[in-house]
Amino acid sequence: METLAPPTSEELAEAILKRPPRFEGTLDDMRGKLVVDKFSAGFGPKKVLEDLNIPIKDNTVTAIIGPSGCGKSTFIRCLNRMHEVTPGAWAMGLVLLDGENVYSPGTDPVKVRRRIGLVFQKPNPFPTMSVYDNVAAGLRLNGMRKEKEIGAKVQLNLNKAFLWEEVRDRLGDSGASLSGGQQQRLCIARALAVEPEVLLMDEPCSALDPVATAKIEELIIALKEEYTVVVVTHNMQQAARISDITGFLYYGRLIEYGPTRDIFENPRNELTERYISGKFG
């Protein structure tokens, strides 16, 4: 039986050397909706992400897996410039959304976040607002004034989040009164209401029970019809179930990236194999 020990620094160095320097998988489209290129990020003197090159294809679910502290959440927060709101945070390199660098000096981070929505690990509906207002808030902030239009959008997005049928009779109730799974779907509806192109999800099911998790997973798969979805998860089975493409991040480096089936059936890198087989993590 193999020991359940993390890889030594020599093994890590070897695994990193063996990894393809850039993505060279079997995806037919290398351009991607989002392209992360020569990207590094960190906090103060600490480098958390190092020289990442990742093309994220449109209308796919891309899962980023890796053990705690590998930089998954930092990575996802870099994609929509949420990383920089933390004091001391820094980032270098390119994140191209449809070819435009979201980090170019003239780019408004608020606009970036509108195009690239983020759903957090813990459901965080606005607690003092009703279910309806949680979804309507973003629309109003964006200047929508006609209540009829807002109402239609609220219904549309609650529907998209598979929540409408469950809350149609309690739209006036507080968002916080819903169950955990419903709250998370409400947060997804809220994110969808401002019509993003990319939806980022940071461990969206880690606070949920299996039934609520199954609903969110079903929802994620449905959402890729309209959106590009990036999910960060430490749950490998979840990545295997819902994603088309999987990236394995370790100590801030991308060790392996490719079609999910290949990663879970026949990973190319020994380190990936050991991580997904539960030999460390």
């Binding site: 490998m236 089975q237 295997a240 879970f264 059936e265 026949n266 990936t272 194999e273 997904i276 087989s277």
Partner: peptide, 9 residues
Amino acid sequence: YQPVATDLR
């Protein structure tokens, strides 16, 4: 155990 990689194969 939902095995993957070599174990699955």
